[in-house]
């Protein structure tokens, strides 16, 4: 299959490991992966903060860049993010219609129909749940809200994780509860967000896992940022990195991970 990777702005700028892992995993499975150079951002931040008008050109740009998937030039678009996939699938057409642009809405729907979150692509489209990965660690999985309740990925990520050799999967208590990220929510309502994060961290620590994984770098940035601040010794690793990992590769743990965080509080660096 010819698969375009949608890096997402966050993955591009701050978590390239997850994007690289997505690419390498799909290549290992025998697919052709390409990186549309024009890509920027899905516009979810604008939409979720209430800037629906300002989101229109961002959506239009995304639809232009990923338009070839609607024509069949590419077979699929994959994003290592439930949230950004959710935005493409559930927000783009809404934004376009609200602006009265029916043509854009229809085109956005055509792109969305062939855009998948990584676990969806693997399990539903490619029909694989054992991707041949090796990851000898104790891992707990946090189902991110948008993958769980917007995309309804269900247990697909767990199917994939259960097939990873060497991986000890432990259930996360209250797994389905939001970690408190919510994009600008974490900034606008930082106190409430922190309270939610505290409970999520407590549950992660209760599992005694070494690694907390998820399908969204954004939520992992949040959970990992909290776990790191408290020096808990638990790291966050994107699902794609675990699935890309084999006996032959250095594990993300050894290579440094998204959970790797600054040693100094940020204020100290002003």
């Amino acid at each position: 299959m010819k698969i375009a990777v949608m890096a997402t702005c966050l993955g591009d700028a701050l978590f390239p490991q997850a994007v690289q892992a997505t690419v390498q995993l799909l290549q290992r499975l025998g697919h052709t992966v390409l990186f549309p150079p024009g890509q920027t951002c899905c516009g979810q931040m604008h939409v979720n903060t209430g800037y629906l008008r300002e989101a229109v050109p961002v959506v239009r740009h995304h639809v232009e860049v990923f338009g070839p998937v609607a024509e069949g030039t590419w077979d699929a678009v994959v994003a290592p993010s439930g949230s950004c996939t959710g935005s493409v699938r559930h927000q783009h057409a809404v934004v376009a219609r609200r602006a009265g642009d029916e043509r854009l809405a229809e085109r956005a729907e055509a792109v969305a129909a062939r855009t998948f979150e990584l676990s969806e692509l693997l399990v539903d489209v490619l029909g694989v749940s054992d991707v041949g990965a090796y990851y000898p660690h104790r891992v707990t999985y946090h189902p991110t809200c948008h993958s769980l309740r917007m995309l309804r990925v269900g247990d697909k990520p767990l199917q994939l994780l259960r097939a990873v050799r060497g991986l000890e999967l432990v259930d996360l208590p209250d797994a389905e509860v939001c970690c408190g990220f919510g994009g600008t929510f974490a900034v606008k309502n930082s106190d409430t967000s922190t309270a939610m994060l505290a409970d999520k961290m407590r549950n992660v620590l209760d599992t005694r896992a070494e690694v907390c994984t998820a399908g969204d770098s954004s939520c992992l940035m949040h959970i990992g940022g909290g776990l790191g601040r408290l020096r808990t010794g638990v790291r966050t690793v994107h699902l794609a990195e675990i699935l890309a990992s084999t006996e032959a590769t250095q594990t993300p743990a050894a290579a440094g991970s998204p959970g790797g965080v600054r040693d100094e509080p940020v204020e100290a660096q002003r």
């Binding site: 890096a7 993955g11 591009d12 700028a13 701050l14 978590f15 390239p16 490991q17 994007v19 690289q20 990186f35 974490a186 900034v187 930082s190 922190t194 994060l197 940035m221 949040h222 990992g224 940022g225 909290g226 790191g228 601040r229 998204p258 790797g260 965080v261 600054r262 509080p265 940020v266 204020e267």
Partner: peptide, 15 residues
């Protein structure tokens, strides 16, 4: 953000 969370280390290169 930084009141309760660390900031991810910037990667050496973007994706």
């Amino acid at each position: 953000w930084t009141g309760a969370r660390d900031v991810p280390a910037p990667p050496a290169e973007t994706a």
